[in-house]
Design a binder for these strands. Sequence first.
DNA 1: CTTGAGTCTGTAGTTCCTACAGGGTTTATC
DNA 2: GATAAACCCTGTAGGAACTACAGACTCAAG
Lengths: 135, 135
Amino acid sequence: MRSQKREFTIGALSKYSSVNIETIRYYEKIKIMPSPPRSEGGYRLYNDSHGRRLSFIRRSRELGFSLEEIRGLLTLVDDKSYTCAQVENITVNHLNTTRRKIADLQKLEVVLDGMVSKCHGGHVPDCPVIDALSL
Amino acid sequence: MRSQKREFTIGALSKYSSVNIETIRYYEKIKIMPSPPRSEGGYRLYNDSHGRRLSFIRRSRELGFSLEEIRGLLTLVDDKSYTCAQVENITVNHLNTTRRKIADLQKLEVVLDGMVSKCHGGHVPDCPVIDALSL
DNA sequence: CTTGAGTCTGTAGTTCCTACAGGGTTTATC
DNA sequence: GATAAACCCTGTAGGAACTACAGACTCAAG
């Protein structure tokens, strides 16, 4: 189960992380992903830690965080010289928006689930979906 | 508490819904928001239901749904002539991604919460945030 | 009836990707 | 070891979802 030191190319990384090759290169350009070592011929060579970092970015994006928010969290991973006050500032903020998102999604879940149930019951239901997240 | 038939301009709608004026006009252009009636002089005049719809869109965007996904859900609100099969198709899909997002956010919540606690304890914690959402 | 805040249309810029084009590299096959 | 298929390289141009003007018009307050 321990992680081998195997390397893989950008295509493999793309498949593993479900991030497009072009997007991976874009992330390197804007320095949210590090520049990996290269092969003789100039191919990028990645390892497992690149894969984990990239998956984290992808899923965070799907959860509606901006690249700048993600970059903020990742500095905590990259730079070990932070004070507690700085860590807290970034983390508490992220935690608050995370909790707000969970609450919103749960409201949405209730409404959608209700619609599916009514459909199973044979009625075409009204769609009160807007009311779940308005205001 | 019953809703008055009051009208308001785009600026008021923007404040109420926390959506930029330009974005509201953009949403009208791409037909995800309806064209509202106009005043004599050509000003857009909105009512409460525009406000609710717009808030729904904003919050859905913050939760990482694309405008096309949101448009899909909104057709259920706009068009009352759907069959149950069609409603179910759209709704079940949205419900699944909603649940996946909740699960991911909860994992993130645990990790962030752990970091805040450790910080309160006086230690600058490691940041295992990537592990929460990798793979 | 003027003044200033608000709105109009239209266009150009930003962020975050996505899709080529034209060329070099790796690897599997003969 | 030649050669093709599959892969990767850089660079640029396009798309989605905004955002920020510019220049002109409207409206409400004094």
